[in-house]
Structure formats: C-alpha cells, structure tokens
Design a protein around this nucleic acid. Structure first.
Lengths: 221, 221
DNA sequence: ATTATTTTGTGAAGCTTTTCACATAAGCCG
DNA sequence: CGGCTTATGTGAAAAGCTTCACAAAATAAT
C-alpha cells in the first residue's frame, strides 16, 4: 500500500523563499493602494519576474487564487506571512554595537516585520551599561546566560571577523538555532543551527564585475 | 568556415560571481596564513562548497592551477581580483547619510577592496555642509552635476523607499551605470544600468521560514 | 443560458547549474 | 627513470529551477 502523497518536508528553493519576501513587500504596497485582488501578471511586473514564476512559487504552499480573478491581496499577504513565519514576534539579540550594529537597531524593515531587537551586547566598557535607543547594552561576558534568560530566538552578529567565531560558539551554547551573520567569515556551527550570511561588499563586487565585463543581464520578457 | 570557438560574452551565473567573492576572501586569509598553494578541496572546505564546484567556477575564466599541487594563493587572488574588476579603484558616492548610510561610510570591507566613497549626499539641511568622516555632505539638489564633476562610477542608495525612485532618476541622468540599492523597493532604470538590491530583512525572513518549517538544509558532503 | 474572456494551477519541456568521474599532468621518492 | 600519489580540468550525467502551454474554473456579457 503506497501512500498517495507524502506531504512532508520537501525542500523549497532558497530563491522561492526570497521571492516570497518580495511578494510580501509588494502586497503591502498594493494593500496601501487599495487593491482588492492582484493577478500573477501584475505581481510579476512589479518585481520583474514572470507570471508563471509567481504562480509556481505560490503553488508550492497551496492554492490562494481565484481563476479569472487573481489573488486576494490582504488574504494572500496574510498567508505569506504565515508561511514565512512573520505572523508572530521574534525575539532578537544583536551582538556588536558598532557601525553596522547600531544602524541595524534602528532599521525600520526589521521592526516593521516583527523582528524585535530586545538585547544588545558589546565588549567595549564605555558602551556597556549605556542606553542605546532604549536598550541597555550588556556585557558580552554574560552572553550565554542573558540570551537564555531573555528567551532570544535569533542572534545577529555584527562584530569584527576575527572574534565572530568565539561569539558564535557562545551563542550556540545558549541553544540559539538561528544566526544572521554580518562578519565576513564562514562560521562553524552544528547541523541544527541555521546561519545566513549578509555580505554587503559582494553586491558591490558583482557591480564591479558586471561593468568590467559588460556582463549581459539575464533575459527578462 | 566556422570559427572554432566564439569567446564572446557567455553569461556567467550570478552564483559563480558570488563564489568568486568568497574565494577572494578566503585567499586573502590563506595569504595571511602564509600558504603558498591551496587545493580546490581546501578552498571548498573553507566556504562549505564542493571541490568540483570550485574547479568549475575557476575553469570559466582560465586555468590557474597545477595538477598534483593546487592553486598558487597569491597569483590566484590576483587573477580573481582582475576578473571581478577589484584590481582598481572605484569612485563611489553614497546618497542618504542616515542609519545605514553612515554605517556604510565606515564599512571596512568596502575600503579594503578599493571601493572609495568619495561623495556623500543628503537632503537634511542640518547635515548638508557638515563633515562626516572626512567627507563634506553635499546637497542632494546638486546630485546630477556633482556626480559628474566627481567622476563617480557607482552610487549607493540608502534613502527611504518613498524617495528612492526620484533619486535614481537623477542618478541615471548623471550617466551612472551601477547602483547598489538599500531601499526596499524595485527601482526602474534603463537597460544599460546595473542595479543590485541589498535587502537585509530578507535573510532574517529566511531564518524565520527555516525555523517555522524545520526546513532541511541543502545537502553538503 | 450560452459564449467569450480572464487568469489560475500544474504537468511537462526546456534550460541552467551542480556533481560525477576520469583522463591528464605534475611532483615526489627511491 | 619509473611507478605512485596528488589534484587539476572538463565532458557528460544528474539534479534543480524556470518557463511553457493548456485544461479548468470563475466571472462578465449578451
């Protein structure tokens, strides 16, 4: 007896998830513009994709549209929020309140999507204890215990590359399963910890490459 | 008479270029650690890739290794710099000296790779004329002319989403062909202008998705 | 109520990227 | 120098992702 369909964890591509983020953003705009429904065509146009791509992406998660009509804006937005897990608050800590770090504390897109930075850590004695945008900066020495006490779920690393691995080791000990890393270094973590890297010079390098090589763009109809 | 091979502009995948950035970074570290040569195996291990991937990526651009030995660290680093176009200085301007903007001005990875931010622009009267990390902030009203006068080649957009398109229109008029955009909006530009988007909440959303769905990771041997 | 129109959802085709596997070349060692 | 080891470079296979194309479903129009 063969089960008709194993619904389990099929792997969804990274690109699909990233496009869901784009759809979410576009749907927020459409909502503000008082659209009630939107077609895959319109959604595609706004993010420079193809309608088929939009429909395929959504089809991995269910059927959300009405034939002949399109997708209901508010409802689809809600559904995508659920898929992405951003229909709830996430408790986030940030380590390293330097240039990048302090910019991130005030980064609107984070708070708008219910990523709440509730703890800050640094190793600089002049910063520790001071209040930064309403959050008192903690000593990195107490990282592990304070992450646990504050029930942090996601940690953002914004420290120099040279010390990032030491900090991550502590973060892992605090049983954190998700890390967003801004340090330009490849972090070693156990298999059950998710790490995503944010490397801002990569995109500049891509631009540089494209210009030097007059790199053709991907065709887009 | 058919030419044996058309060497022209075959499209290199975005992933390959991004990995070249990673190789470049790793090679810099290997250089510091006084390695003379490195195998595709070691290079792969350091960036969590496969050796075949490393060799294939490099093979698009030439043959850089020695069989039985590996790749010469310093030489390969130099070659990748040439491919990426980071063996020269790029003149960069940044528009929007807010949270993100000012963090980017001091971002070490940019300057280390010869992306030189030489102009800053803002529309805030309190900031205009003031000196920020050695650069006087210009009025955004003069964007077009000042970009041209300063011979800027790359513009970084770090302004609110609502005004990004207006600024980009001016940037395009100044004949700039490369834009790095931090505003969460899809910019419209002519076909010959390269735009890369940096969206920091996307990676947080990916983490959120992964946690909520216990998303399996891509297998890595 | 029938026909025309719109637009979804989705197998299948097509294309791209990654991985495999092996011939080939270089170094090393006795 | 000849055999052994290491590790590249690369066609070919495999896997993964995107686009096509069309049946199905819903609305609108007459």
């Amino acid at each position: 007896m063969e089960p008709t369909e194993r619904l389990g964890k099929k792997r969804i591509s990274e690109s699909t998830i990233h496009r869901l983020s784009l759809y979410y953003r576009t749907l927020s705009m459409l909502e503000k513009e008082n659209y009630e429904t939107v077609s895959s065509k319109e959604l595609a146009k706004r993010e420079k994709l193809t309608p088929a791509q939009v429909r395929k992406d959504l089809s991995f998660f269910g059927t959300f549209g009405t034939r002949g009509l399109g997708y209901p804006v508010i409802e689809l937005k809600k559904q995508i929020a659920t898929i992405l897990g951003i229909d709830r608050q996430w408790r986030v800590a940030l380590v390293g309140v330097g240039n990048i770090g302090s910019a991130l504390v005030s980064y609107k897109e984070f708070s708008r999507q219910d990523f709440h930075i509730v703890k800050l850590f640094d190793n600089d004695q002049r910063k520790i204890g001071s209040n930064h945008k309403g959050i008192v900066i903690s000593d990195i020495k107490n990282l592990q215990t304070e992450l646990q006490e504050a029930k942090i779920e996601i940690v953002i690393i914004a420290v120099p590359a040279a010390v990032a691995q030491y900090i991550v080791d502590d973060v892992v000990k605090a049983n954190i399963k998700a890390i967003l890393n801004f340090a330009p270094v490849n972090l070693k973590v156990p298999d059950d910890v998710y790490v995503r890297n944010e490397n801002m010079s990569m995109e500049l390098e891509y631009l540089s490459f494209a210009m030097v090589n007059e790199h053709p763009k991907k065709k887009l109809k």
